[in-house]
Design a protein around this nucleic acid. Structure first.
Lengths: 222, 222
DNA sequence: CTTGGGTATAATGTATGCTAAATGCAATGT
DNA sequence: ACATTGCATTTAGCATACATTATACCCAAG
């Protein structure tokens, strides 16, 4: 395997992205170029370029001459993003489900088992982040829709911090873990329609939970 | 209206975008930072930042240490993009159609009239670019789905150059202009289902035309 | 006390120049 | 003749330095 040279810009982008996703940088916080540059021991140029990338990912807003801030998603924006996710992920799944091999399904089940034991161990961070997206990703892996996939990944990443926040504040996932089992079963049965509809309601269900919480928080601000 | 100060980066981005959309820069062409900087009388920094933005828009590929190239869309990528557009634009329309006012519909019709006279005058550039997107935009204007809208605009822009290319090579639009009238009628009737289905087939029809041409070109390369 | 304008300051935007990586070519050895 | 290594050239990446813009503050006028 070839070693890869990461540019400073890429490293900086990863660092800032992580800060935003973990909540170290909260929504609305201003991102000062000079401060970040000093902290990461680089000049402002790679910081600026990283911020531009993150803007494309929807994690920061970049306003000319005013600087960057971590994006603050309103309840209505969350609403829209999850609607988009439902739409796009169902589309992906419908294109992928026919091509899923037995091995793919076994792999997905293994990830699910890991996910469940992570949940039992109380590691919601791992369960909702990496493992969750790996499970969904496995189901979409045969879609051969790279651009759609990219969009889906982007929006997943973008909503991840809100899912995490929800877990913190609500004290756990409300979406039942057995939903994943059901989804997997539909995929096994190659029942595209049922699988997609179930996936949509799975995503929209998560949305409703998060939105409720967010609306409450928005209210409390007044 | 507030006057707005455009940064060099924005100006450069617009300039390069235009070059790509008009075909002055062809798909696959390398974009040399120094050359662009010299041509536009700026330093390489705004050029770099503009290229990063354009990468987010999908118009260029940016590879570390190798430079940027105008994205080259294969037939299968075109396929996927138009599928996405059909999906997303139908979604937008479904959210917008109920909110469309009489005035909106009149405005849309006016744009359509302009579009038709531009077509009669042989100005396909204007008809397919600005006027076409303004017509569709008017129909989506009440959707209150800013993120979806942004995606749709991005993909429209991205496919525009292929539509133009198609017109050049095929000697005209194959999609009948009266399709727009039909779509408008469905919107007037507030028939969401019919309007969305019609819109989808409208977009997918355009896709097929362009894909055919693209496949032919790809074949001819061998 | 409020409002308007001008200046100070802090932040972003951009130019210049240096560093480092990738590519092509030539020289050397097999 | 071919592969391989090293060098030279080109191009991108980045740091430093300077220019420009926005904002906050102060002072003066109403």
């Amino acid at each position: 395997m070839a070693i890869e040279h990461k540019t400073r810009t890429q490293l900086v982008a990863e660092a800032i992205r992580e800060k935003i996703l973990t909540g170290e940088i909260k929504a609305g916080d201003p991102l000062r170029q000079a401060a970040l540059a000093a902290e990461l021991n680089v000049s402002r140029i790679p910081v600026r370029e990283a911020l531009l990338q993150l803007e494309a990912e929807g994690l920061v807003n970049f306003e000319a001459h005013k600087g960057a801030t971590a994006t603050e998603l309103s309840a209505s924006q969350i609403d829209e993003i999850f609607d988009l996710r439902a739409l796009l992920e169902a589309e992906l799944l419908s294109h992928s489900i026919g091509g899923l091999t037995d091995q793919d399904l076994i792999d997905a089940e293994l990830i699910l088992t890991e996910l469940e034991s992570a949940m039992d161990a109380g590691d919601t961070h791992l369960a909702t982040g990496d493992l969750n997206s790996r499970f969904h990703g496995k189901l979409y892996s045969r879609a051969q829709r790279p651009q759609t996939r990219e969009l889906v990944d982007m929006y997943s990443k973008n909503s991840e911090r809100y899912v995490r926040m929800h877990i913190l504040l609500a004290g756990g996932l409300t979406t039942a873990p057995e939903e994943h089992r059901t989804l997997l079963a539909h995929c096994r049965a190659k029942d595209t329609h049922k699988a997609c509809e179930f996936l949509k309601s799975h995503i929209l269900g998560a949305k409703d939970d998060i939105k409720k919480l967010l609306l409450k928080i928005e209210d409390e601000k007044r």
